[in-house]
């Protein structure tokens, strides 16, 4: 069987789609609305304990990477079909490259905090 990278990208895209659909809404409601607007008020010490646990950090990284691949893959085809930008290679490099840069940033943030 021929080796092709696209099946693996698509598998990660799908995994990221599931993660974004299942995990992200509650996180957004909490972090973007409930906490800043004071609907809930967990102490800073509690949240600090949470983000400093290795479990949280590994889990976050495992959720974030497929979501980035998901976004990059989807946006790539949106740019290509929706906006008809025909520089296929350039668009792919920008999208997946951007995802890779963000994944490295995530790694740095999650290992240094």
């Amino acid at each position: 069987m021929k080796f092709r990278v696209l099946p693996f990208v698509w598998l990660t895209f799908s995994g990221g789609g599931v993660v974004a659909a299942v995990f992200l809404p509650v996180l957004v409601v909490l972090l973007a609305f409930a906490l800043p607007l004071g609907w809930v008020d967990p102490s800073h010490a509690h949240l600090e304990g949470l983000v400093q646990s290795w479990f949280t950090r590994i889990a976050l990284f495992a959720l974030i990477v497929p979501m980035l691949v998901h976004a990059a893959h989807r946006f790539r085809y949106t740019v290509y079909d929706g906006l008809q930008v025909k520089h296929k290679v350039l668009v792919a490099l920008a999208c997946y490259g951007g995802a890779m840069v963000l994944a490295m940033a995530a790694f740095l943030v999650l290992t240094t905090v």
Partner: peptide, 13 residues
């Protein structure tokens, strides 16, 4: 078919 292609790729490689 995409899922099948992905499964076969995982199996093969």
């Amino acid at each position: 078919y995409k899922l099948k292609a992905a499964q076969e790729s995982v199996k093969a490689f």
